[in-house]
Each structure stands twice: as C-alpha cells, then as structure tokens.
Amino acid sequence: MNEQELKKLKLLSAKIRVNVIKMLKNLGHGHIGGSLSIVELMSVLYGKQLNYDPENPQKEDRDMVVLSKGHGGPGWYSALAEAGFFNRKLLFTLNQGGTRLPSHPDRRYTPGVDMTTGSLGQGASVAAGMATGMKLKDSEQYVYVIIGDGELNEGQCWEAFQYIANYKLNNCIVLIDDNKKQLDGTTREIMNQFDIAKKMEAFGFYVQKIKGNDEAAINEAIEKAKEVKDSAVCVVLDTIKGQGIPFFETLAGNHSVKFNNDEINHAADEAIKQLEAFIGGGRL
C-alpha cells in the first residue's frame, strides 16, 4: 500500500469515527466503546479490501461481512454510509422509530448488511455456513466475520472455529476485536481469555496478531491471510475500547455511554472538532 492509499484510509477512519460520535451523541446513548475499536478495521475493509457495489448491495459475487458483535453496529453503519450504501443523514435515525438502522444490524432493513446479528456467539457459525456455500460454488468471494473478545465466552464460537479449521475454510477471515473489555468489566476479570492467538493456533488456524489501530498493518494482515491456501485464517486485533478518543478510552463504563453530563458531552464535542479539523486539513 502506497502513501496516498494509506492517507485515504486514515481520512476514512476519521470520517467513520466522527460519524459514530455524532450519531450516538444525537441519540443520547449507545455502544461507543466497541464501535470505536473497529473503526480502522472497517476503514480497511470498505476502503481497500472488500469487493462490493453500493449501487447493487446484492451483487452476486460480493464479499460479505458478518459483524457478530452486533453492538458495534454504529461503527459498521458509519462505514456503510461513507462507502455510499445510504445517505449519511440516515445515521441520525439510529435506533429510532421507523429507522433502517436498528441498534444491532438487521439484514432486512439496512443496505450492505448481509446478516442479522446481536445474539453473541452466532456470527461465527453463520460465517462458516456462508464460507461453505462459497466453497461449494467455487466462488472467489470472502466472508469477514468480526468477533468480540468478550463474545468468546460463548461456546458456539469455538464449535464454529473447530468446523472452520477442520474444513480449512480459508475464505472465512476471522477477525477478533481484542479490546479487553466487555459489558461488566475487563475480560481478564470476568472470564480470562488467556492468549487468544495461541488458542486459535491450537484450533488449527494460521494466526496473525497486530495493532488494531494501524490501517497499514490491518491491510497487510488481510493480504497475508488471503495467501494462505491450506488452513483457516485468523487476525487478532489488539485494540482499545473507545479507540482513538483518549477520554472514551479511559472511561470506566465505556461499553455503552449516556451523553447526560457536561464532561461527556464536552469530550464528544472536542473529539468531533479535532477529527473534523484533521479531515478538513487532509482532503485529497
């Protein structure tokens, strides 16, 4: 990836991040931590890696994304809006009556969403099924499944991983958002994950562990994953809940935030101001 391409991805990341903050502040609450921790990943997927057409969301040979950690929906919606699947104004209808953007993704309502998610643990199984279908059709499509580290408490994830590894579904790229926190605290406190990368290796995956806020590293890892022909593939992204906004990174209850006090609203406004200055100064 050249310098110009990387610059475009960093601008896209900033746009996705500012969208997330604006839409959740407008709503007054929402899952900001896990939405922000996948921003750079979404930027690379929609800015570089995915085969998609926003004018034809049901394109036959499209790559598919399964956001198994459905509470990160605002991060996905922001990326879809920037990719042209729908008008950005729709972001401000998040989780409101009659919206096409429910709190958790729903394939019946949102262009670009191929799988309804939110019940944690199910996305890996669905992605495995999608990848199997693609293999049976000799398709060159990929399915990217994004799984939260807290979600790995669900046994269904590990059953699906066993299946993916056994059948060497290298067209199913497993992306684990290791932001080290879940709803009620840290993953170490609630259910110690130990070394996720080593676990995935033990299950039979080719595993890469990278910094999840580095667009170049994410892109390179996906490229390497696509070169693997004889095993399942996994990328563990070392991220931070609330990634990219220091105030939200350090906020104790940053899984879901209520914009109901001056401190939080001021932090959001300052983040928006800084991100928009970066975007304005970096236009290509």
Rank of each mutant, 00 (worst) to 15 (best):
V65E: 03
L101S: 00
R62Y: 01
L183S: 15
P111W: 01
E159L: 13
A128R: 13
V174K: 09
W158R: 03
N171R: 03
G118E: 10
P74H: 01
S68Q: 11
G148T: 05
A165S: 11
P57K: 01
S103N: 14
M115R: 09
Y77G: 02
T132M: 14
L80R: 09
T116P: 11
G155T: 07
T132A: 13
N179S: 04
N166W: 12
S119C: 13
G150M: 10
E60L: 06
K89T: 06
A127V: 07
K89R: 12
C157Q: 03
S103C: 15
Y163M: 13
V143D: 02
N166G: 04
P74T: 01
G121T: 02
L136Y: 14
I164M: 14
G155R: 02
G72C: 09
G112R: 06
R62I: 03
V66I: 15
S78H: 12
D53R: 11
Q162T: 06
F85V: 00
A131L: 13
E151R: 11
F85Y: 08
Q58A: 11
Y77E: 06
Y142S: 03
K59M: 14
M64G: 07
G72Y: 00
V65M: 10
Y167G: 01
R88K: 04
L91Y: 04
N171K: 11
N179W: 06
I147K: 02
A128K: 12
M64Y: 08
G75D: 08
T116I: 10
E189G: 06
L120P: 03
N171A: 06
I173T: 08
R108W: 01
Q49Y: 06
D149P: 11
G73P: 05
F161W: 08
A160W: 05
E55A: 12
T132D: 08
D178V: 14
Q162Y: 05
D63Y: 01
L80G: 07
D178S: 14
A128P: 09
S103I: 07
F92E: 11
G148C: 10
M191C: 10
L67K: 02
D138P: 00
D61Q: 14
G121F: 04
G75Y: 05
I146L: 04
L152K: 05
